[in-house]
């Protein structure tokens, strides 16, 4: 079994900056420093799980012991547009308004 030190993950400032970018979070230099330390500890703590030999264990796809939950393809009532838009910070009565998105849609 590997020792704890061998599996201690190294989380770099660059990792934190990248994850923050993906999460669209603007971090100060100080925050990057403190988060690098904190996240290293968290990941290190969780990585203790890797000490367990799971070679004989089926991967778990879902914690619930349930499968095949479906609904029929039957229409249900949608929200009224006004209600759909109500909690948006900005809208024009028809669409949600967001800061300019240039280029094509993300389109799955």
């Amino acid at each position: 079994m590997p020792t704890h030190d061998d599996t201690e993950p190294k989380l770099t400032r660059e990792d934190v900056i990248k994850v923050a970018m993906l999460a669209r979070l603007a971090l100060s230099e100080n925050e990057v420093t403190s988060l690098t330390q904190e996240l290293t500890k968290i990941v290190g703590f969780v990585s203790q799980l890797s000490e367990i030999d799971t070679s004989d264990v089926e991967p778990l796809a879902h914690p619930l012991d349930s499968q095949n939950v479906f609904r029929e393809d039957e229409p249900a009532t949608s929200l009224k547009t006004a209600d759909a838009l109500r909690s948006a910070p900005r809208h024009d009565g028809e669409c949600f308004l967001v800061p300019a998105v240039l280029g094509e849609s993300s389109s799955a």
Binding site: P75, S78, T81, F96
Partner: peptide
Amino acid sequence: KTKLFCGCITTFGSPPNTQVC
């Protein structure tokens, strides 16, 4: 007739945000 995870219909060309839940 409906979306993948909810009962909103999928008709093309409807007025914006009329098929949402």
